[in-house]
Write a protein that binds this DNA or RNA. Structure first.
Lengths: 136, 136
DNA sequence: GTCATTTTGGCACTAAAGTATGAGTTCCTT
DNA sequence: AAGGAACTCATACTTTAGTGCCAAAATGAC
């Protein structure tokens, strides 16, 4: 950002100098002044593009907002959502059970409910659907 | 895009008119010309930002570059890669077999090879790994 | 044409995943 | 305190998934 400000300032200075220079050499020539204005217009046009591109690249967060509303809409509970996230991490039912201090049976129940709520036939499809709905 | 061009053209016209107007009213006042130039500079600066934003929104491709090099590195073959993509779409082995006109046995073979090459224990983990490696 | 790799696929088997049903517990709300 | 939703777990069963081993075509490079 500091760099941008410096570049920007230098450009303004250069344009002002250009203007001052033209004022004393072509003061009587209106056509010349129009050319100077044209150059300035084009220059600032590209400066605008450049700065915008820079700032956009900074905020180029690929973070996908999680659609909480959708989760509620689908009636997915807290526990089910926890399990869903673990599924998307590629964990098995047994592994999820161990991590959440539950039995594998419980995880199976949760998974079954998740599949119904997401209208999926398999856990892999549930991952795909959940991602397309931006809930994980 | 047509709209942008029209807006752009109208702005240029307005600025030229402003310039012409100022030329006949404040022709002797250099300070006034400087102000006009400043206005033009600011105007084109924002035009640049506006147009850039428009064009960027059009090419707002959330496309994550697929790491072909990584696929080769892992020794994943064409057929295996096809199967991997189908897995990530949440399809079962039987469904993949139907789509690719192969037997389920063949798909199982491919899946097993994929799991070894991606160092995954399950297809769900393979999806997660493949995504983190940006190969799907 | 030969050799290595890829692709295909079968069979037998084990391991996970998923379904169905039922039931006890906890927690929140009215 | 009663009712409902959420959470927990079990048992029995069916369906997928995944492994190991083998082997025949097909493909492509040298």
């Amino acid at each position: 950002m500091k760099k941008t400000i410096v570049v920007f300032s230098l450009l303004i200075l250069a344009i002002l100098l250009l203007f001052q220079f033209s004022k004393y050499t072509f003061i009587s020539n209106n056509l010349q002044i129009e050319i100077v204005i044209g150059i300035i217009a084009i220059a600032f046009f590209f400066i605008g593009i450049y700065i915008n591109k820079k700032s956009l690249h900074k905020t180029d967060t690929p973070s996908v907002e999680i659609n909480m509303k959708k989760i509620e809409e689908l009636g997915i509970t807290k526990r089910e959502y926890e399990v869903l996230k673990k599924i998307s991490e590629g964990l098995s039912n047994k592994e999820i059970a161990t991590i959440l201090f539950l039995s594998e049976s419980t995880i199976k129940t949760h998974v079954s409910n998740i599949l119904v709520k997401l209208d999926a036939k398999r856990r892999t499809q549930a991952i795909q659907i959940a991602k397309s709905l931006q809930i994980i």
